[in-house]
Design a protein around this nucleic acid. Structure first.
Lengths: 144, 144
DNA sequence: ATTCATATGTGTAGCTTGCATATATGTGCC
DNA sequence: GGCACATATATGCAAGCTACACATATGAAT
């Protein structure tokens, strides 16, 4: 029945018992510093593949161009690619022509282009939301 | 050892066994339609409180102005407010002056203003990232 | 008495994500 | 041959977020 530094109201108001669930982490500040909309990597992979067919290992460093930190985690990239393929948004074939380990080369499908355009609209909306936030932020009076 | 519709490479290339983890949900399309950066509600609450002190029930509909759907889930709002208070970003006192259930009225602390400015910078970066995505999107050739 | 508007919370399943780790092929080098 | 390294793909897991459902309390109105 903790009430921090401020006073306690009527006794029966004390339901719930605070019970603050132990976490204290500034979400919105994940390790790569910038908070992107959820699943944004998916959109970036679709855009990269729409520009040119490619494969995971090559796409990883190219994500830097979209604000993902360098030394990007390969795990997420491969997971997104496999999931997109499973959903029919991209297709792959093995490229064993080169030396070394085989590459799984992905190409877009028509559904993939559709999904990319959905993402584009989502991102457009997001820019609007964030821009309105910034407009409003610039108006606040820090003197209060 | 499924290889979908495309051909199989060398036998030993078949590690991992696909194992597609059963999920098939378009993340990036949560129920309210717009995907915002993680924790964005926290930033909005700070901005609202920096404009004027307030309490949960009143803040809930005001979040609409930031792109959160109406009939916003009260649970998230109260959780964010409690967490912000626990971190010293806002402070509360009970207001029992009115009729009906008491209100927990929140006000900003100096740390809260600092956090809001961190959020503003994060959001500014985000707008840049998303805008660059859109610029690039507009250049792709759908004819491929 | 019961219902409603006001007001604040908790429980939980399902999902994302970052980090660590595993595996495979071929090259360069001693 | 043996070893490290670059290339290449993938899985396991802990920590955390979020939507949805639910619980609880006060006072007014019918």
């Amino acid at each position: 029945m903790t009430f921090y530094e401020h006073e306690k109201p009527t006794d029966s108001q004390c339901r719930g018992q605070v019970h603050t669930d132990g976490r204290d982490w500034h979400q919105g500040q994940r390790t790569d510093g910038v908070v992107k909309p959820e699943g944004f990597m998916e959109a970036c992979l679709l855009l990269l593949l729409s520009e040119q067919e490619s494969y995971g290992y090559e796409l990883i460093p190219r994500l830097e161009e979209f604000g993902f930190g360098d030394n990007q985690d390969p795990g997420m990239v491969y997971r997104y690619l496999r999931r997109l393929e499973k959903r029919g948004m991209i297709e792959s074939q093995w490229d064993t022509s080169g030396t070394g380990a085989a590459r799984r080369v992905y190409t877009m499908t028509p559904d993939g282009y559709d999904l990319l355009s959905v993402w584009a609209e989502t991102i457009r909306l997001n820019i609007g939301i964030l821009s309105r936030f910034m407009d409003r932020y610039r108006k606040i009076d820090y003197g209060s």
